[in-house]
């Protein structure tokens, strides 16, 4: 079987995979990184979102072999070095931006990609950026609020808190 090598959350990893092995399978089954979730089979829910070389992708729609040599970041790599919640994670907790937690890793990874390229997004920009991430629990209110808060913007005027 072919071998794939990549850096995941700063750690060099490698493993034997099949041609059809998806990045998400490599991460979950090969590396035990089960924080990245699979919520659909048509590449729409976004629960499997990770970063490949800094860009957000759906790891269920990328073959592991196609990102050979890449730098991959998953939800497990988003905390601060001391283990405390990173800025975006903390904002999600502070603003109740998650309920069941299943879509959450994808939401956090999508939000991180947005803020990296657009540090002060508008509400509309946040909503547009989350187009490919489905949440069934929150009605998105607190997710959008959390992303705005993580960007350092004042969210105190947003209804209901």
């Amino acid at each position: 079987m072919p071998k794939v090598t990549m850096r995941v959350n700063g750690r060099a990893v490698s493993g034997e995979v099949e041609g059809r092995t998806l990045l998400v399978q490599f991460l979950r089954e090969g590396q035990g990184l089960t924080g990245t979730h699979v919520g659909c089979d048509t590449s729409q829910c976004g629960a499997c979102t990770v970063h490949v070389n800094g860009a957000q992708v759906k790891s269920c729609t990328v073959f592991a072999l196609d990102v050979d040599g890449a730098e991959v970041t998953t939800i497990e790599g988003m905390a601060n070095p001391d283990g405390t919640l990173g800025r975006i994670q903390q904002a999600f907790q502070d603003h109740h931006g998650l309920q069941c937690g299943f879509c959450t890793p994808g939401m956090v990874m999508a939000a991180a990609a947005l803020l990296a390229e657009n540090p002060k997004p508008t509400e509309a920009e946040v909503r547009h950026h989350l187009e490919g991430n489905i949440c069934r629990c929150t009605g998105y209110h607190n997710i959008v609020k959390a992303v705005l808060a993580a960007s350092g913007q004042d969210v105190s005027a947003i209804a209901a808190e």
Binding site: M78, L85, F92, Q93, H96, G101, T104
Partner: peptide, 21 residues
Amino acid sequence: QKRREDIRFLTGRGVYTDDLK
């Protein structure tokens, strides 16, 4: 109160059925 369960969900350490091996 902020939710204590969020810590595991936000860090990828929740354990859902399919996560078990």
